[in-house]
């Protein structure tokens, strides 16, 4: 059975003033599929992701999330977003637990506190990302890799079917990249989550990405399938 399309860009165009950043961009990402979006700094990767999430409105074309135009999409619990880490720097002390819980804000609304299932999900994602031991620690005292994983845990706390990550390995060490890769492998293979992952490094997800799409000259270009199977991964 063909997996459902989680994200679809249909002839999407966008520009700042007269400067076109994207034109006629097409992309389909199905559940259980990992698509790496690569390109030079400033090529338009973040713009493309923001269009995909409805944070920017396209000047032409349509973006759909799970078949619904993004402008009228309301089921945001099915979507997780990990922005660039620098964009999430905290002025005041904030614990890992608080960052992760904040991902439930839209689902909880006013007054309500996480129920037993949501608390169990928080514990699960903290465990999945190796953060259980530092749950109460201030995020600012953690390594760059741990901070990045806290943001990923926040995005995963609603058990999304689509996860969008913007340059998640910027400024993190090799060990943290390996942990992140293992977490993504679990999400895609075992939980069949659709993942869109942007990176300036075209080899960032070699062996794990189903497709690699390059943002270049305002367009999206399929550049290569997964170049080599991941060790023991079979992909």
């Amino acid at each position: 059975m063909t997996a459902a399309v989680a994200l679809e860009l249909d002839a999407v165009g966008f520009g700042y003033g007269r400067d076109a950043v994207l034109h006629d961009a097409d992309l389909r990402v199905r559940e259980g599929e990992l698509v790496a979006v690569v390109g030079a700094n400033g090529a338009g990767k973040t713009t493309m992701l923001k269009l995909a999430l409805g944070l920017l409105a396209p000047t032409s074309g349509v973006v759909r999330l799970f078949g619904t135009p993004v402008a009228s999409f309301r089921d945001w619990q099915r979507v997780g977003y990990v922005p660039q880490r620098a964009a999430a720097a905290s002025v005041l002390p904030v614990s890992v637990d608080e960052v992760v819980r904040s991902g439930l804000a839209g689902a909880l609304g006013l007054w309500r506190r996480p129920d037993a299932a949501q608390r169990a999900r928080i514990a699960h994602v903290l465990d999945l990302l190796g953060l259980a031991a530092v749950r109460a620690a201030p995020v600012a005292t953690l390594s760059g890799g741990q901070q990045q994983r806290a943001l990923i845990a926040r995005a995963l706390v609603t058990a999304p079917r689509l996860l969008v990550l913007d340059e998640p390995t910027t400024g993190v060490d090799a060990a943290a990249r390996a942990t992140l890769r293992a977490s993504l492998e679990h999400l895609v293979h075992d939980e069949h989550v659709a993942v869109v992952y942007s990176s300036h490094d075209p080899h960032a997800l070699r062996g794990l990405a189903d497709r690699v799409v390059e943002v270049r000259d305002g367009g999206l270009h399929d550049v290569a399938p997964a170049a080599a199977p991941a060790p023991g991964g079979g992909r």
């Binding site: 999430l53 409805g54 944070l55 977003y81 904040s102 839209g106 689902a107 943001l151 609603t158």
Partner: peptide
């Protein structure tokens, strides 16, 4: 941005 995507 993350809050907006979370449905806030």
């Amino acid at each position: 941005s993350a809050a907006r995507v979370a449905g806030v």
